[in-house]
């Protein structure tokens, strides 16, 4: 299932959080060779993890991380604005209607549908919180994954070729894209809506109606 968890609540899901940071080390340091910081326990964390981001995490039946991504508002520090301005035409992307999505990670051996499930969850965020766009940095490997699940971003700018490509992309919500990723994930939109409501509350709280 998909969990939506702010950084300050990760302590309530220690197994899930620990396996997420370990899987991030496996993806970003070991597989992609990025220059990231991994602590003595084997967990990859960066400065943006200290800003109490919102994590969207696929939790497997065993309670472990299957894939995840991390959101921050673009009105605060973001990776795109702090480090990738050369890929956005020099534009600092700042808006209460745009969030940054980073550290899109899949656990080693994750089921193919996990990536699609994460994108489906991203759509719930857009719809539920009136967010119009996500902006994010991604690499060549993710280009293929996003393409496969039918959620290719609009590329704002990129550097490098082939395997060393790094790009800044933009996602928007559309009913068509939602239908594509839902089909790829094999998850009905009603289910992803239920996961969103489990995290952020149902649309109508029965107790309130009697007040």
């Amino acid at each position: 299932m998909i969990r939506f968890i702010y950084g300050d609540a990760l302590a309530d899901a220690p197994r899930l959080a620990d396996s997420m940071f370990r899987d991030r080390a496996a993806q970003f340091r070991d597989r992609m060779g990025w220059d990231v910081t991994v602590d003595a326990q084997g967990r990859e964390r960066d400065a943006y993890d200290d800003l109490n981001p919102l994590y969207v995490i696929w939790e497997g039946a065993d309670g472990r991380h299957g894939g995840s991504m991390r959101f921050l508002p673009t009105l605060g520090p973001t990776m795109v604005n702090d480090h990738f301005g050369h890929l956005t035409g020099g534009v600092r992307i700042e808006s209460p209607l745009i969030w940054e999505c980073t550290r899109f990670c899949l656990a080693p051996g994750a089921e193919p549908r996990v990536a699609a499930a994460l994108m489906l969850a991203g759509g719930e965020i857009m719809r539920g919180f009136a967010i119009e766009h996500f902006v994010g940095v991604f690499d060549a490997r993710m280009v293929r994954i996003y393409g496969r699940i039918g959620a290719s971003p609009e590329v704002l700018g990129s550097v490098g070729q082939g395997r060393s490509l790094v790009a800044v992309g933009l996602w928007s919500f559309s009913a068509a894209a939602q239908a594509r990723v839902a089909a790829q994930a094999g998850i009905a939109p009603a289910r992803s809506r239920a996961w969103f409501e489990a995290a952020f509350g149902p649309e109508a709280a029965p107790a309130r109606a009697v007040a």
């Binding site: 508002p73 539920g128 409501e197 952020f200 509350g201 649309e203 309130r208």
Partner: peptide, 8 residues
């Protein structure tokens, strides 16, 4: 940092 409808 997400907006909240009191219903939720």
């Amino acid at each position: 940092f997400h907006p909240v409808d009191w219903k939720r």
